[in-house]
Design a protein around this nucleic acid. Structure first.
Lengths: 339, 339
DNA sequence: AACGCTAATCTAAACGTTTCGATCGTGTCA
DNA sequence: TGACACGATCGAAACGTTTAGATTAGCGTT
């Protein structure tokens, strides 16, 4: 900018005024300056600007795994929304690891991000600290965090799983295996509550041998399913509480020589774009990813636009059960298949 | 830092020296400073540091669509690699749009990213300018760019498609539909060359009615497939040159009342994690995503480590044909199926 | 003619670091 | 004992912007 100013024989203040439109500058100087900018190929340095202005027009986004299609889609929507608003987004993947998450949030804050969207991991003690020291607005995505009172957008997980399990019960299933991630994040907790609630509403027992834990990855779903299928009295249906794990479930079913839905019914949380067209067509709980991403972006953009003092807004969206053909009715139909 | 210095009754220079270990500072001052840092909760401002140092420890990464599983995986690998190295990554999605890409690259450069990894779009004129003005190292991913001479990691696309098409020909297919994206990006061009080469090697004609263009999205694959299937003499196999489009292909096959592989064989570029387990199990060309991401990251990290003057390095990796059950042999087997 | 008002422009401080060169004790050696 | 080197510390400039406040010129009023 100094060079531009010299070339145009004006002060840097005038150049700045012209670029930002913060003051009127005469036509002749404007022209000289614009010419100089072109000649030199000047580009404003956003870092210097950020330092002075105290804002980077960059936000931080952390998710557990970008390869989980749910997060892929949400990240994509959020990225687009901020792109439109002229913000850059720094993406971090925490790999479901609390320390990694802490490091990454620190890294983002050091870089003076203007805001944070976090699909958190772990118990959120650090998050609490950040939200309370309250220099940047934070919106929590997909996962609430007790004790952290800030903008949030989540799904009504309990209701969604309740509906899915009730659907299985209505089909005649009585022993329904349930594969979950660890309970330190709210969705897993709430989804489990939906499972319990549905069983209880139907007067069925909640049997602990039917509930298996995994660490969110395909391989965990595989192992959990293997355990379920080798039970003495094996379940007739399996519900997987996240979608990378359901791939493992299907592989386990195949490897053990069974088939879905003939021998065992399967449903899971989170939809796949290809579910409609490959067999078995999975019955899933579909999250409104577009809305989730947009709402999260809007909440944050609103804070960034200056609306800092409004009380925390908590949005809860509804999931939708997508009934396809991976779950079969038990009873009458069972005979016809085994015949 | 000023506050820390005051609280510890030292100069800012000493605080800086301690934090960065750039000079020895006596035990007693060290202790006072560390105490002050803890008391105040001081965090070094990375923006100010970047301004002074001329480096942000941030890189820019642009891809066409993060929802394309290939890019999802590559982004994930790259993100991890830079995370390990203490770099942040700014992610941009260009949506296969040249102007968007230009804007985003400018945005990244304004923010003084230390380097750029680009899966480009369009003809790359801007890219050429950037690479030539040469203040930041650029590595090209997945897509080369003629006239731009810089580090690159790509697949041997022609060979990979040659192998896939040859496989179909060996199965007895003679009319093989081919769905491609536009030729302004190198992989589409090279993959088409592989298709041509395979047909010619087998003495088969390249018929233009069998080649359909789409804009990389599922819906484009759908439309292209519809056209292919309504040809007077329809193809017995379809190869899709990217993987979002193959979902559209499968939907079109379903909607038109045919089934794969009984009525029509399908193969595509890029693998899916679930291909093994859902029916039909797609035969695909699998790219070594892990290696691609790591190599790209390594090339850039090497430049960032100071190795600026080495001549551009061009890496070409090999794809792998994953034969599953979505393509069936023509001839003898055909009868037994239709019986 | 002196005055005030407005519009255009400039000067200089500030943002929070890093780093060069200067300063100041202290101990060592001739 | 004076000179000197050395280690520890500090002062201040610099990175490239923004912006408050000062300055200047032009012009209409009284």
């Amino acid at each position: 900018m100094l060079h531009v100013a010299e070339a145009a024989r004006v002060s840097v203040a005038t150049v700045s005024a012209l670029i930002n439109g913060t003051a009127t500058v005469s036509p002749e100087l404007s022209q000289r300056i614009e010419q100089a900018i072109r000649d030199i190929g000047y580009k404003r340095n956003a870092i210097a600007r950020s330092l002075k202005m105290g804002t980077t027009r960059t936000i931080g986004l952390t998710v557990p795994h970008i390869t989980n299609p749910f997060f892929t889609d949400v990240v994509s929507v959020i990225q687009q929304a901020f792109d439109r608003a002229g913000y850059a987004v720094m993406l971090c993947c925490t790999d479901e690891d609390l320390n990694t998450q802490d490091d990454q949030i620190r890294l983002l804050l050091d870089r003076m991000v203007d805001g944070l969207i976090v699909a958190r991991v772990g118990d959120g003690a650090i998050l609490k600290g950040i939200v309370e020291s309250a220099n940047v607005p934070v919106v929590l995505l997909d996962r609430v965090c007790e004790g952290v009172d800030t903008d949030t957008v989540v799904l009504d997980n309990q209701r969604a799983v309740f509906d899915a399990i009730t659907y299985l019960i209505d089909l005649g299933h009585r022993r329904i295996g349930y594969i979950t991630g660890t309970f330190d994040i709210s969705p897993m907790h709430d989804r489990m509550a939906g499972y319990r609630e549905a069983l209880q509403a139907a007067g069925l027992p909640v049997e602990s041998e039917l509930v298996r834990f995994g660490n969110f990855h395909e391989v965990d779903g595989y192992n959990a399913t293997m355990q379920l299928l080798s039970l003495h009295d094996r379940p007739s249906a399996i519900f997987s509480a996240n979608n990378p794990m359901v791939i493992g479930t299907m592989k386990a079913i195949r490897d053990i020589g069974l088939s879905c839905p003939q021998d065992i019914s399967v449903a899971c949380f989170d939809d796949f774009p290809w579910s409609d067209v490959f067999q078995p067509q999975l019955t899933t709980v579909s999250q409104p990813v577009q809305a989730i991403g947009e709402q999260a972006a809007n909440l944050l953009l609103d804070r960034l636009a200056g609306n800092r003092d409004a009380p925390p807004r908590k949005l809860t969206l509804k999931g939708r059960l997508m009934i396809r053909n991976s779950c079969r009715p038990l009873g009458a139909v069972a005979q016809s298949v085994s015949a």
